[in-house]
Every structure is written in structure tokens, then in C-alpha cells.
């Protein structure tokens, strides 16, 4: 097998929001993550875990408060509202809600050619390129002269995808691209993204709270809880043998359509307030197997038996115990 080549690297990335009442909220805390060339990486977690914030920081539309993000070796950081460095054009974001990410008052063609024209492509050529892209995502050329209200949710998301593709990106970060869509449109749009990634040789971070879709389409899966990464592994490994108790809880909470009538397992409690995260392991307040040390010691992402997770019971304590035994 080929050695994976990193294309987007996040080193110890933190993102802090300053709130109106001057309190600070650190939504992403010291995250390390690598996206390899040609890979689809699923990023999952409950709402409020910081997955969207991480996605926005990774494309450089949110400033980080610590750590570094490298795209093909170029540091990723916001420049200003209107300028984006040329190197970063190959890094694009698709938003969750195509009802709000497209402008209702401009023709679709005008919205699509913006990016191209801004970066020096002639209007005619830009228009032709956009028409081709629209056809590739399953819409007709005449879409160019229409407005967004003339399209359904699934069609709008196709338009948004075409727009993200105009500058021929190498990496796409898709932030919940299917969760605002109808059930039947979800599968079609997810499939379109997978096909495009394979066909155009792109890489993608697919952010979603729908674990079963992530399971089907992603090569690797990263799980976040309350701003921190808790487990990263090949998707089939995560599902066959989750190492972090939070990953286990997420998987067990998915109801199975087998007609056997078993209720999914409940994870008690809510995600704690990220302004005042629990001490030690952030998951210990809801963890079914937490021990006293978990509320004191802060676990780090570490490799145990070739698997990366941040659970004291997997990593630090196990090592200590085995040292004692030796």
C-alpha cells in the first residue's frame, strides 16, 4: 500500500470565541488531525462538540487561538473579509444549509462565476466552466439564469457543491452537507460528494452527526467530544472495536432497523457547558466506566495497540499498571 501523504495538517489547534459578556469559550482545544491525499475523513460528535468550529478554522475562515494548520505546507489563516491567499483557493468549504449559503437575490450563474472572475478568469470562460460543473452535479445549464427559490433543498446543495468546485479544490471540507435535506435527497447528495472526490482526486473532511452515513462513506473517522478529539481510526476499526467509551456510547445509541424492537442505549446527561468543562477527562461526568482518577488526570491522545484514543483506562493507567506488574 502507498504511504499516506498528508495534505492538510492540524497541529495542536485551539479556537476561542470571545462572547458578548467578555467570557471566553474555547470551542476546540488542542486538536491534532491529519487529512491524507485522496482520503475521506469523517468527523463526528454531538452538537456543541466543536466539529463545525474546527471545520471553519481548518479552511481559514475562523482565526485559531493556538497551534498551526498547514495546507500543502502553507499556513492556513484568515487574511481579511475579501482577500484569500492564492494557495488557499484549493481548500474549500461546503456549508450545512443551502437555504442560507446561497444568495436568494442573485442569479445562480452570477454566484458561481464570482470566484473565477475574482481570480482572473474571463467572464465568458467562467460561465462556460460553471455550466459544465452544474451539469456534472446533475443540473441543467439553464440553472445559470435561475434563482435559488426555484430549486429544492437537494438541488440547492448541488448548486453549492458546484460553487465550491469552481476553483478546482484539492480539499473540500463539508460541514453537515446533508443534514438539512430530505431523507431521499441525503443519499443522493452524499453519493455525489463521494463520486466527485474519487473522480477529481480530491480529499474531503465530512463533518456529520449522522454516524451511519459516515460509516459508509469515510475511510477514517475522527470522534470529538466537548472540543477535544477522543478517538481517530480507520472507519471499520472504530465500528468493529471502538476504544473510547464515548465512541462506544455513540454507536450504541443508533437504533437498528432490524425489526427486533430493542431500544437504543441511552447516554445519560447532556454535554456539559464548554465554558466550564469538567476537570480531568471531559467525558468522565457521563462515562459509564469512569474511575476516580478520570476526574483528576487529563488524558492525552496516545497510541495503544496501534489505535489512537484518549482514555486513561486505555492509555496512561494501563501503562502504569503494566509497569507495576513488571
Amino acid at each position: 500500500m502507498n504511504e499516506p501523504q498528508p495534505i492538510l495538517t492540524l497541529n495542536d489547534v485551539s479556537v476561542t470565541y470571545k462572547r458578548a459578556d467578555r467570557t471566553k469559550l474555547t470551542a476546540v482545544v488542542g486538536v491534532d488531525l491529519t487529512l491524507n491525499r485522496g482520503e475521506i475523513l469523517g468527523l463526528v460528535g454531538e452538537s456543541g462538540c466543536g466539529k463545525s468550529t474546527l471545520g471553519k478554522a481548518a479552511v481559514g475562515i475562523l482565526p485559531t487561538s493556538g497551534g498551526e494548520i498547514l495546507f500543502n505546507g502553507t499556513p492556513v489563516a484568515p487574511l481579511s473579509r475579501s482577500v484569500r491567499s492564492r494557495e488557499l483557493l484549493k481548500l474549500q468549504l461546503i456549508f450545512q444549509d443551502p437555504y442560507s449559503s446561497l444568495n436568494p437575490r442573485r442569479k445562480i450563474g452570477d454566484q458561481l462565476i464570482d470566484g473565477l472572475v475574482n481570480y482572473g478568469v474571463g467572464a465568458e470562460e467562467a460561465r462556460e466552466n460553471s455550466a459544465k460543473l452544474l451539469e456534472r452535479v446533475g443540473l441543467s445549464r439553464s440553472t445559470l439564469t435561475k434563482y435559488t427559490h426555484q430549486f429544492s433543498g437537494g438541488q440547492r446543495q448541488r448548486i453549492a457543491i458546484a460553487r465550491a468546485l469552481t476553483l478546482q479544490p484539492e480539499v473540500i471540507i463539508a460541514d453537515e452537507p446533508i443534514s438539512a435535506l430530505d431523507a431521499s435527497a441525503q443519499a443522493q447528495v452524499a453519493n455525489l460528494l463521494v463520486e466527485l472526490v474519487q473522480e477529481l482526486g480530491m480529499s474531503m473532511i465530512f463533518i456529520s452527526h449522522d454516524l451511519s452515513v459516515v460509516r459508509q462513506i469515510s475511510d477514517r473517522t475522527a470522534v470529538m467530544y466537548l472540543g477535544k478529539m477522543v478517538e481517530v481510526a480507520n472507519t471499520h476499526e472504530i465500528w468493529d472495536d471502538p476504544r473510547h467509551p464515548y465512541t462506544k456510547a455513540l454507536i450504541q445509541a443508533i437504533p437498528k432497523p432490524d425489526g427486533k424492537g430493542f431500544l437504543p442505549l441511552e447516554l445519560p446527561g447532556d454535554v456539559p457547558d464548554p465554558r466550564t468543562p469538567p476537570s480531568g477527562c471531559r467525558f468522565h461526568t457521563r462515562c459509564p466506566i469512569a474511575i476516580a482518577e478520570c476526574s483528576v488526570l487529563e488524558p492525552q491522545m496516545a497510541l495503544t495497540n496501534n489505535r489512537l484514543s484518549s482514555c486513561l483506562l486505555n492509555n496512561e493507567l494501563k501503562e502504569k499498571r503494566s509497569e507495576n506488574v513488571v
Binding site: E46, S47, H209, A253, L267, P268
Partner: peptide, 9 residues
Amino acid sequence: DVTVQAGIL
């Protein structure tokens, strides 16, 4: 979220 959904069910 699925975890919350399990609680409601």
C-alpha cells in the same frame, strides 16, 4: 443527536 434521541425513545 443520536445519544439524545435514545433518551427520548
